[in-house]
Design a protein around this nucleic acid. Structure first.
Lengths: 343, 343
DNA sequence: GGTTTTATTGGGAACATTCCCAAAATATTG
DNA sequence: CAATATTTTGGGAATGTTCCCAATAAAACC
C-alpha cells in the first residue's frame, strides 16, 4: 500500500515538490496562498512525513536507544520514564530494548540499534555481559553512550549511578548499631559493578566497626529469584547462623523475609533484613522492609541529561561525565521493632 | 561522523557496490573469493547496514509499535514481553511507546510511529481517549492495528482481551456466596471498555442472586491512586456501609485494604475485598488479596500472533479477529478467613 | 578455435526527503 | 517605463541500499 508523499501532493496541485516541502516544514519563502492550499491538501490526504527518508538524508534520527536487562521490576521502567521525559523535552524519541538478562539478546539488540542509526544510547547491561565490544562499536562510530546503574568500568564513557558503596555501608552500619554481630550478605554476580560496590560497602562497614569478615556469610548469586530461598536457608542452617542479612536488592530481601516466616523466625528480633532499592512492595508488607532507597526517576533524568549534553557537543571535545546520586536508608520493621504494625 | 557504507567497501576493493551488496546479503551469484574479501573488509571496518535506506527502498521496517498507557505496573511490561517474544521469532523489532495516560501524548506518539513507518501496531489506549482518529490513520494507510486490554469498540480491527465480564461476575458471585449482601464497586472511568465490562459483570451477578443494585455503592473513578482512599472512606462512611468491595484493579484494592486497616476494620470479617489482575504484591501482603487473575503474558502473545497473521496476509482479505482469554478467581484472605497467615 | 552457455560484475533507477542554486514572477524604485 | 530588488518557484543532487538488466569474463561444447 502506497503512502502519500510530497510528490503526490505536488502533482495534485501542479507545483513542484520543493514548494510542498517548504510549506510543510514551515520554511518562510513560500507564498501564503500556496502554503494554505498545500496544508489543506496535506490534511485532506492525511499526509505523514516519511521519517526514514529524512533521517537518511540528514544522518540524524532524533532517536535515542535505551537498553535494559529487564523491565518487570519497578526499577527500570521508572528510570526509562525519567529519561524519556527529559529526552522528549529536547525532541528526541526513544526506542526501548530489553535483553531479558541474556548476553546474546543484548548483542543482537545492539546490532539492531546500530542499523537503525540511533543518535545515542543509554544502557544498563545484562548480568551475563563480560565482553563490551558491542557497546564499543557505538563509541567508535561517534554515537555517544551513557551507562547507568550497571556500568562498564573499562569503557571511557559517561556513567550515572547511585552511591552503591555508601548505601551498602550505611545499611550494614545500621545493622551493627542496632546490635547485630553476624551479618550475612546475599550478593549479586560479580559481573555487576554495583554488586561489587555494595559488597565493598558491606566489607568496609564491618571492618570499621571491628567485626570480622566471615566468608561463609557472603554468598554471591545470579539474581535468579527462584534460587534465593535456597541460599537463605543455607545461611540459616549454618552451625552459627547470621543474626542479620543484607541483600543485593529488595526482591531478594522479600524472599528472605518469606523464608524467615516459614521457618518461624521472628523478624527483626531473630533475623534482621535489609534490602536495596526501596521497591514499592517493601512499604506494603509486614514487617516493612528496611532498605536503601535510590532516586530512580532522577537516575533516568541524569542519564538523559548527560547524553543530551554530549549530543549537543558536535565536535569531539566532550569528556565523559561521572554522576553519582545519593542513596538514603529507609528504616522499617525488618530491622527495628515498631510499636504499630499499621501503615 | 561518517559511518561506513557499502560504497566505501566497494571503493576500497575496487569493485562495484552491487557486488558488495550481493556479498553482504548472501546472494549466491558472487564469486567465492570476492565474497570472502568483501566479508573480511566489512568485518574489519565494522560495517553495519543502514536500515533506514533499506526500509525506504523496501517500504518495510520490520518494526512493530506497541503503545501502552503506562508501564509502571507489572501488567503492561509483561504483556509487552509476551508480544515481543512472539514478534522476535518472526524477525520483527519492537518500539515501545507509553502515553502516561495522556491523550495528547498518545496522539503525538501515533504521529511519530506513523512517520517512522512501522509495519503494525499493538495498542492499549489511555483512559482519556475518546477520539480514535489517530488510530484510524493507521487503518486507512493499510497498517494493521491490534487493540488489547483497553479496546475501542467502534473500530473494525482485531481485539484481544480477557473475559472481563465473566471475571467480574465470578468475583461478585464469590462475595455473595460467602454471605455478603451489600457489595460496593469501585469502578474505572467509563472511557475504558474493560471497566464497563467489569461493571456489567458486577451488575449481572447481583441481579442473578436477587440482590438490589444500590447506586450509592457504585463509584466510578479515574484510576488516580491518590484519590482511591477518598472514595473508599466515602463508602465506609455511608449510613449503611458495604460489607464487601470489588475494585477495578489490584492497586485500588490494596489502597482499600490499607484504608480498612487504618480504620481498624477487620478484613475479611467486616469488609471483604476483591481486586482484579493478580498483581504480584497481592500474594505477598497480609491478608492476601482475593483477585481475578488474567493470563498477562499470553495476552501479549496472542496480540502478537493476531498481528503477525495480518501482516502475512498481504492482500486485503484479512478479517478482524476477536480473542477473549479466560480469567480465574484467586481466593485469598481478603474474602475468606484463612487458618494460617503464613506464606 | 570459434561458438554457445554459464558465472560474475557493473551501471543506473528507485525509495522520500531536504537544500542549494538558478530561474521566473512580482514588487519597488527612480 | 525601465531598471533593480525582492519574493516565489522549480530542477537536481544527495542520502545508502536493493534489484533489474546489460556487459563482460570464464567455462564448456562441437
Amino acid at each position: 500500500m502506497h503512502q502519500t508523499t510530497i510528490i503526490d501532493i505536488a502533482k495534485a496541485l501542479c507545483i513542484s515538490k520543493s514548494t510542498v516541502s517548504r510549506a510543510l516544514t514551515g520554511h518562510p519563502n513560500v507564498n501564503a496562498k500556496t502554503r494554505d492550499r498545500i496544508l489543506d491538501m496535506a490534511a485532506q490526504v492525511d499526509y505523514q512525513r516519511n521519517q526514514l527518508a529524512i533521517s537518511l538524508l540528514t544522518n540524524r534520527t532524533s532517536t535515542v536507544g535505551i537498553m535494559v536487562p529487564e523491565f518487570i521490576s519497578f526499577f527500570f521502567p521508572k528510570v526509562i520514564i525519567g529519561a524519556q521525559e527529559e529526552l522528549a523535552r529536547s525532541g528526541y524519541n526513544v526506542v526501548i530494548c530489553h535483553s531479558n538478562e541474556s548476553y546474546e539478546t543484548e548483542v543482537a539488540n545492539a546490532k539492531a540499534l546500530l542499523a537503525s542509526r540511533i543518535d545515542g544510547l543509554i544502557v544498563s547491561h545484562t548480568k551475563e555481559t563480560r565482553n563490551f565490544d558491542h557497546f564499543r562499536s557505538f563509541q567508535r562510530k561517534g554515537i555517544p553512550v551513557v551507562f547507568f546503574n550497571r556500568v562498564c568500568e573499562d569503557m571511557d564513557v559517561s556513567k550515572v549511578t547511585v552511591d552503591d558503596y555508601h548505601g551498602a555501608f550505611q545499611a550494614v552500619e545500621h545493622l551493627i548499631q542496632t546490635g547485630r554481630r553476624r551479618i550475612a550478605h546475599l550478593s549479586g554476580p560479580d559481573t555487576l559493578m554495583n554488586s561489587r560496590s555494595r559488597l565493598a560497602g558491606y566489607h568496609d562497614a564491618l571492618t570499621k566497626h571491628g567485626l570480622p569478615i566471615a566468608p561463609e556469610l557472603i554468598i554471591s548469586y545470579d539474581l535468579n529469584l527462584d534460587k534465593a530461598n535456597i541460599y537463605v536457608n543455607h545461611l540459616l542452617n549454618l552451625p552459627n547462623p547470621p543474626d542479620a542479612l543484607f541483600t543485593i536488592n529488595d526482591p531478594t530481601a522479600l524472599e528472605a523475609l518469606s523464608v524467615a516466616k516459614r521457618r518461624g523466625l521472628c523478624v527483626p528480633d531473630e533475623l534482621a533484613i535489609v534490602g536495596f532499592s526501596d521497591d514499592p512492595v517493601s512499604a506494603l508488607i509486614e514487617p516493612g522492609l528496611t532498605t536503601v532507597s535510590q532516586p530512580v526517576h532522577e537516575l533516568g533524568q541524569q542519564a538523559a541529561q548527560v547524553l543530551l549534553r554530549q549530543l549537543l557537543t558536535e565536535d569531539n571535545t566532550f569528556v565523559a561525565e561521572r554522576v553519582v546520586l545519593p542513596t538514603k536508608l529507609i528504616i522499617r520493621g525488618s530491622t527495628v521493632q515498631t510499636s504499630t504494625n499499621s501503615y
